[in-house]
Design a binder for these strands. Structure first.
Lengths: 241, 241
DNA sequence: TAGTGGTCTAGACCACAAA
DNA sequence: TTGTGGTCTAGACCACTAG
């Protein structure tokens, strides 16, 4: 018995090549800096075309496992880093995906005059109009996020009239202003007085805070501070060589 | 004048296709759920081979911008998420890359008997030997990370003899046990008494805490808790459609 | 000059889904 | 049955690096 009992999935050829190299790297057979077999070596080894080998190697490069240099060769990359994809999804979706009940309470919804700094973030002038909302998200009745948001009226003029029981601010903004770019930071902070009150936590309980600015077609759409009680919220991730 | 003044970089064909679609998506010409042109449409449009079109589409899929269904078509993905690569590098490298001075102080280096829970993490039995280290990292003389680590002696028998002034624990472990898998969480916590003392911060200052377990060839190598003062440390990231 | 990777083609066969 | 995407081939030309 050597292969494919019954109609077992006949793994694509490029995956055979890719897995062979990946296993060699994660098993330590090749270590950081080692020269790997060339494309033509792999062509002979696996009896496949060069395009197929090339796809395997390109994907390993995109995964950060190898480095390639034209005219020189393919090498095992330094794995002195753990990279993985951090995904920040719409919170309502995330909660529902866990099979829990998502609720949202609007605490504030208003128009404000931009400070100089805020105006700068949005490419507007100080004193220009901005929308401001503060809403709290609940999972099975427990507060999990305080969302303090500024919105550029130019990209979402109807923002103040949205029914946030039907559509979360994130969902609405993604709909009216297709996401093209985002920048975020993650830090640990103590809650403000208001955040502590809205989240029903102690002012001494640390919060995981995500600050995010998003852009659509190069224009700033919204700037948001998402505060999560540290005791109930964490980000998870993984990585596989 | 229609093309290539002088020897301007002749962008690869697959990038022309990829950029055309990406710009259409981020400009809102196509929005989430829309059907995109088929591979054969793009072949005629750009006068290139199907393999070239296919590469462009495959990369857009890997970037999370489109969804593809065999027999159906290619659609704009829901961008109800912001994904980006979170990279956790060796701290010494990171500090040096910023042009700062990295220092490290070893606070503890010992052998301990595994508790039942720790043993489980490492696939050992309660009471088995584990190495334990607590070191503090400094950037330009300022404490930035407290690293509390357990190490599996089977994968790094010489751990206790390493000179951590020369090689950080992370660097050493990556060298002796090639990284094959990692799992981490990120949360906001108050420091323990020891952490507060070692980091020279108040016991009320929130910390950004990364807990990470890494594996090599399927065997648990190390389990570490990295605590960073919230006031000086944050994770940054970005995303571009 | 020889060997490497980067890109591209014009076909091909297949699995799959919808009409 | 038609059109879709998923994979693969056997060539090709090029730019780059090293000896």
């Amino acid at each position: 018995m050597s292969e494919a009992l019954s109609t077992a999935d006949p793994a694509p050829q490029y995956l055979r090549v890719k897995n062979h190299l990946r296993e060699g790297i994660s098993s330590g057979r090749w270590v950081a800096g080692d020269l790997l077999p060339s494309e033509s070596d792999l062509v002979s080894l696996f009896k496949v075309s060069r395009m197929t080998v090339n796809r395997a190697l390109r994907e390993l490069y995109q995964d950060g496992l190898i480095q390639r240099m034209q005219g020189v060769g393919t090498f095992v990359a330094d794995l002195h880093r753990i990279s993985s994809t951090l995904t920040v999804r719409d919170l309502a979706e995330e909660v529902q995906a866990r099979g829990r009940k998502h609720e949202l309470r609007v605490h504030l919804l208003e128009t404000v005059a931009a400070t100089a700094e805020q105006a700068g973030d949005f490419g507007l002038r100080a004193g220009d109009k901005l929308f401001h909302s503060v809403v709290v998200h609940f999972e099975n009745g427990k507060s999990i996020q305080c969302e303090d948001r500024l919105v550029n009226p130019a990209t979402a003029p109807e923002y103040l009239d949205v029914d946030f029981q039907q559509t979360t601010p994130t969902q609405y903004l993604l709909k009216v202003a297709p996401l093209s770019e985002a920048r975020y930071t993650i830090e640990a902070l103590l809650p403000s007085d208001l955040e502590a009150k809205l989240l029903c936590i102690s002012k001494r309980e640390p919060c995981l805070v995500v600050k995010r600015r998003t852009f659509s077609r190069g224009v700033a759409v919204t700037s948001v501070k998402l505060s999560h009680p540290g005791s109930t919220y964490l980000l998870e991730g993984g990585f596989q060589a």
